[in-house]
């Protein structure tokens, strides 16, 4: 009998993705499989163009694969329609992007509130305020996103990612657009919150030092997946 805790939070089976160039398929992700267990922190590393972001997009259900399956907490993500994936995303996944991807016209607070409001949390405002305090931006909550600095914007993004209390946090080069010092502080914050909340963390990076802080690394080379310890 399998313990429920043994079910991987993320199971990837023979996942592949092509693009069509001049009527011929170009494989950007060769079939590959792996599991990620609850509480793990996994770094997906590889050179530029190796297919890291493509993989992350597929894991999040932002894109659809050409073959293979993605299972999230025992539910097959790849078998769902776009709305189903959106609902599951809203419940289970938090995101941090390289280019922050805040809604520029909303305030910091509104940006954090948005995923909560989409899930009809009655205490969206209080939760968002709490998370802004956690990332140290309580005094900036009424600033519009576009007037915040890069580091501040990424902290808002982290607050937004944790606000819905996700099981899985996906981060795409979270420090890519930041200077080294700001980036380092941000990573500290990310790992700290991850630990506190028992979140599973999957991050895409080509920062070797950041990768070593993770419990496991998945290496992508020209679209082929190689597991490493």
């Amino acid at each position: 009998m399998t313990d429920i805790a043994d079910i991987p939070i993320l199971r990837v089976v023979n996942l592949a993705r092509h693009v069509w160039v001049n009527d011929a398929p170009l494989t950007i992700l060769h079939p590959g499989s792996f599991d990620i267990r609850k509480g793990e922190s996994v770094a997906i590393v590889g050179a530029s163009g190796s297919g890291k972001s493509t993989l992350l997009g597929l894991l999040a259900g932002l894109d659809t694969p050409d073959a293979g399956e993605v299972w999230l907490s025992g539910t097959e993500l790849t078998a769902m329609d776009e709305d189903g994936r959106a609902i599951l995303r809203g419940e289970k996944i938090g995101f941090v992007f390289q280019s922050f991807q805040l809604l520029p016209l909303m305030t910091a607070l509104e940006n954090v509130m948005l995923p909560l409001e989409l899930r009809l949390f009655p205490d969206a405002r209080q939760r968002a305020q709490y998370w802004l305090e956690r990332v140290g931006l309580a005094d900036r909550r009424h600033y519009r996103a576009r007037v915040l600095s890069g580091g501040e914007q990424q902290r808002v993004a982290i607050a937004r990612a944790f606000a819905t209390n996700p099981d899985l946090l996906l981060a795409d080069e979270p420090t890519g657009n930041l200077d080294a010092e700001t980036g380092a502080r941000l990573i500290e914050l990310l790992f700290e919150l991850n630990r506190e909340n028992g979140t599973t963390l999957v991050l895409v990076t080509h920062d070797a030092e950041l990768a070593t802080r993770c419990s496991r690394r998945l290496l992508l080379q020209a679209g082929r997946l190689e597991l490493s310890a």
Partner: peptide, 15 residues
């Protein structure tokens, strides 16, 4: 772009 972000954050099509 906004629409895409809303979708990433879990917005349903109806919403």
């Amino acid at each position: 772009r906004e629409t895409a972000l809303w979708r990433v954050l879990g917005a349903r099509r109806r919403q």
